[in-house]
């Protein structure tokens, strides 16, 4: 098991390559009738190229990306503000905490029927769902992170002449960053999962909608391309926040 001890992060590509190889091999064995239900990886990649070259994938991907970015940035920002207020001021926490605790467990897609009636089917719908998906967990994590900051640091800062606002910006927020980033990291991936689901159910454009069209045409290769795009985007978003967190906090943690 020496190879296991020497396992480095760069080696993470090896299982992926093995998996793709096995996938290609089994698909080529033709155990399941035809290539329709189980296309080999090479066929999927060929389709990926066609979709990219024709602009279909790019167009749908951009639709999804814009929705995710707008919804996630707005939801995170609002979540940060409300979470900060809840963590910092007891009165805000006592007022909002019961509400947040009640609404937080509702899955983001649970809002879909209600929002379809309120907002109609259009761009606002997926953005609103992603907003909700990001808002509650990030507000919750931010409030928890702020309240978890040792009160003694605040006492020390007071004796050193810091005002309440200065204490918040220079002590509390930096120390709450690890908790805040946990929320951002998890929800950035979740935003992609939610947008795909919303597009599959209600929106005529985007990666999710492309998957639904492919399903009706029995194009497994296109469905798999969309799934790969989804997986890669979730991975990239989560990694982005993980590396940002590392950059901002690893020097003192």
């Amino acid at each position: 098991m020496i190879w296991f001890k020497n396992f480095k992060p760069g080696w993470g590509i090896v299982p992926v390559v093995i998996f793709l190889g096995v996938w290609e091999f089994i698909a080529r064995l033709n155990l399941i009738p035809g290539e329709i239900f189980f296309p080999p990886f090479s066929e999927v990649m060929r389709e990926f190229y066609y979709l990219l070259a024709s602009g279909v994938l790019g167009h749908n991907f951009l639709s999804s990306l814009v929705r995710v970015l707008i919804g996630f940035v707005a939801g995170s920002f609002a979540g940060l503000l409300v979470g900060t207020a809840m963590g910092w001021k007891d009165i805000v926490n006592k007022s909002l905490s019961p509400l947040v605790s009640l609404i937080y467990p509702i899955p983001a897609l649970g809002w879909l029927p209600l929002l379809m009636l309120w907002l109609g089917i259009g761009e606002a719908l997926p953005i609103a769902i992603i907003f909700i998906c990001a808002f509650f967990p990030i507000a919750y994590n931010t409030a928890t992170g702020i309240r978890a900051v040792d009160k003694n640091y605040i006492q020390v800062a007071k004796t050193l002449g810091a005002s309440d606002v200065k204490i918040l910006t220079s002590i509390i927020m930096p120390l709450a960053l690890p908790n805040i980033f946990t929320g951002l990291r998890l929800e950035s991936g979740m935003a992609w999962r939610v947008v795909i689901a919303a597009e599959m159910v209600a929106i005529p454009s985007g990666i999710g909608a492309l998957m639904m069209k492919a399903e009706s045409l029995m194009r497994m290769d296109i469905i798999v391309v969309c799934l790969i795009v989804l997986a890669v985007m979730c991975f990239i978003f989560e990694k982005f926040f993980a590396s940002l967190e590392k950059k901002l906090t690893s020097h003192w943690r």
């Binding site: 003694n152 640091y153 006492q155 007071k158 004796t159 002449g161 810091a162 005002s163 930096p174 120390l175």
Partner: peptide, 19 residues
């Protein structure tokens, strides 16, 4: 308030800002 009393306070746990 503490900030205007011109005091230096060394706490038992020291509480150096870790960041």
């Amino acid at each position: 308030p503490p900030s205007k009393r011109e005091i230096g306070y060394l706490f038992q746990d020291l509480n150096l800002f870790p960041h």
